[in-house]
Design a protein around this nucleic acid. Structure first.
Lengths: 176, 176
DNA sequence: ATGAAGTGTTTCAACTTTCAACTACCTAGC
DNA sequence: GCTAGGTAGTTGAAAGTTGAAACACTTCAT
């Protein structure tokens, strides 16, 4: 539906090597991500929230425009608004008016939020090491970077070529 | 909390190479998975449902015990029950009593379900190729398999060592 | 000025996910 | 045979997540 990528017919099936790579990658990744989320749960964080907070803590003055934060954290503006409300109540962030553009707001990380993320970081890094990085050689790491740089480049290419705002859109057709 | 992996204190931070590998992998993966889900949306499928159906279609007689299916599709039994209800209404699967253990049920893929997945498969494979596999050399694929085999082996190790039923458990502590 | 477009929030309805029963059955020990 | 305890799977309610659309402002170009 909608510009079927030309080559859609007679797609060559995955051969054994390809299938193995795909399945191994996809399954191990899911398990690992579950595990990481689990490791963070003890700190009342999800990976998604950690990502938002980490981005914020890296930003100059630990503040970013809402839109920009949404973009780099790869979530919709609406979703960010929702999450911010929760994190605001936890006292980790607050909103601040943008003086130069009065439509805009900054998401600002509070000291409490910064302490929270600083406390979470070692646990998370430990997770990432134990569950992933420490099992890779330096060469592996470089290979991986190259591979996923390529993957990402192509995705970006396709998205720019298209129209939509990149986000999903779940069009479960008119089937009940 | 709960057997902190001994080395939890003074965790060495990720160096540049490690950080690059981790971020590139995690971000590109997320984008790619989003894209794949998007590609499937036109066929009224999510990756999760596709996974369930694919497992079923690969099983002998295209049937599996509910528990077993839940396990290999990496979802909880409860969740599978709920999803099955939906897929049953779509006419893709049905439940069948297990004669040898009358507590049990088989999930059975119907012909209609098989046709649906057969129709979806080329699109999905095309997605997987375009967005991932075709950007890897044969060597890349082998490297990837090795890497994620290792990652998975270690995860399994840790899980076996623990008590729970492997599934998350979200213990957001007693805060509010 | 005026209208179009941008920023961010909010409401709403749909959907997903988990949790804690709950039914039904099986197995073992006595 | 009975009973205790375990397993298979379902269920309903509660909680959480999500995106679309409507909204209130503000800015910007004419």
């Amino acid at each position: 539906m909608a510009t079927q990528p030309s080559s859609a017919k007679n797609v060559p099936w995955l051969n054994t090597r390809e299938m193995k790579a795909w399945r191994t990658y996809i399954i191990a990744s899911r398990r690992m991500l579950d595990a990481l989320d689990n490791d963070l749960a003890g700190l009342d964080l999800t990976m998604a929230d950690y990502e938002v907070l980490a981005q914020l803590s890296d930003a100059p003055d630990r503040k970013l425009r809402m839109s920009e934060l949404a973009e780099i954290a790869m979530i919709s503006k609406s979703r960010l608004s929702h999450r911010m409300k929760v994190m605001e109540q936890a006292g980790w962030v607050r909103r601040e008016e943008c003086p130069s553009d009065r439509r805009g707001f900054f998401a600002v990380m509070t000291d409490k939020g910064f302490k929270a993320i600083q406390k979470a970081a070692p646990t998370h890094v430990d997770s990432v090491r134990n569950r992933f990085i420490d099992h890779l050689t330096a060469k592996d790491q470089e290979d991986l970077s190259k591979i996923f740089d390529r993957v990402q480049a192509q995705l970006r290419g396709q998205f720019i070529a298209e129209d939509g705002p990149a986000k999903s859109s779940n069009k479960r057709s008119t089937k009940k």
